[in-house]
Nucleic acid binder design. Structure first.
Lengths: 223, 223
DNA sequence: AAGTGTGAACAAGTTCACAGCC
DNA sequence: GGCTGTGAACTTGTTCACACTT
């Protein structure tokens, strides 16, 4: 387990894990890096190199045990533990997040929702009560939480994140369309669809046939 | 305008653009790469190099005209045009997307929503009617659309994307938690919070103090 | 004096290619 | 024979450092 594992490698592991889980579910016993690579559109060498940071999980001449590799990845990523999550900001987006069933299934327990709107406080989303944002800091001290999901307006995002960190949260997923600055060592990811759209329009501007036409010209599938 | 501009550069431009827009709004006339870098947590050299792919927008000894650079980026990214968008899948997430006011303000016009649930078809979200998914392909031929946002269950995602591409859509933002394969030349981005959470738990597993504690140890701010 | 634009140096990340094992 | 694991070669991306401009 070498000194420094590149962050890009870590970011790929969940993708491998998702595919492996599916293969396990489908009952596949063994799979080669070749096949994983084809399925994922990356080179087999990359998959082997990535996995080799963590151990030697394959068997020469055979490939990887799907079962075994799935479990290894689960351990590496910490998905054999359950993680507690709070969602702050229960507008339409926050509500969509809070009611997304995918979190529970992957080990993320949404333990509380917070909003500062008195009309929302006291209601619930899929059985999870919405609590008063002003009590967040206090309640984090009572019951430590691992991860915060932030879905508040831009202006409020930095303050909310500060409060979460103050309360011991060490990973934040920020849906607010603004950059937030946090202390070293707190994990932070941003989700902002506008930025994605804007980089896609760059390419649209430059691709052939500016104005989208029925286009029966279906080209070659990529790897 | 050299031969090949790295994709990572393109992906950073919207971030620069967002900051520049704010500075312009605040009435700033001039800004240096130094200051932009500090605000964004990247090196000034990177900003200068990135911009230099597209032209020479700065003035030595002064910096960049905020006004000018904002306009240049708007042109480069194609944000001086309006782009038409359809959202497919009007569950809770799709509804949150459809009602997000940020799109209109950035030049993205949501022109139609689609769902296959007969109970939803005929209703509307913020004044935009929900149409029958079965008519999508036909209606794309009548009225070409630039961008598709997909918020359907995993099983349906590939089919929906194929239909969009068939109908001439050349950029897709996929919220379904599954990989989708498209013809060369169609822009595709995935948004999947689970993958982000899973790479964050990797780091949480390894950071000091596993169990989140009040943590008054606020460390140094990063760049 | 200050700050850009950019080749050159450097760092990071990816792919190759093959020895070694099943 | 087939496929992993991995140094070495290569490619891509970042930062340095300075000539040049205002």
């Amino acid at each position: 387990m070498p000194l420094e594992i590149p962050d890009v490698v870590i970011d790929r592991l969940p993708v491998y894990y998702r595919l492996l889980s599916r293969l396990a579910y489908e009952g596949r016993a063994v799979v080669s890096s070749q096949e994983l690579g084809e399925e994922l559109g990356v080179t087999p060498a990359q998959i082997r190199k990535d996995l080799s940071y963590f151990g030697r999980f394959g068997k020469q001449g055979r490939g990887y045990s799907v079962q075994r590799l799935t479990e290894e990845l689960r351990t590496i990523l910490g998905l054999d533990t359950r993680w507690s999550v709070v969602v702050v900001g229960i507008g339409r987006l926050g509500r969509a997040i809070a009611s997304y069933p995918g979190f529970e299934g992957q080990g993320f327990d949404i333990v509380a929702l917070y909003d500062s709107d008195p009309n929302l406080v006291g209601t619930d989303v899929e059985g999870i009560p919405v609590r008063d944002y002003r009590t967040l800091e206090h309640e984090l001290r009572q019951r430590p939480v691992d991860i915060g999901i932030v879905a508040v307006p831009s202006e409020a995002a930095q303050g909310v994140c500060d409060t979460l960190v103050q309360g011991g949260v060490r990973a934040i997923l920020n849906y607010a369309p603004t950059r937030v600055v946090l202390p070293q060592g707190v994990e932070l990811k941003h989700i902002n669809p506008i930025l994605f759209l804007q980089s896609m329009t760059y390419h649209l501007m430059r691709s052939p046939d500016r104005a989208g036409r029925p286009a029966d010209a279906r080209r070659e599938m990529p790897a």
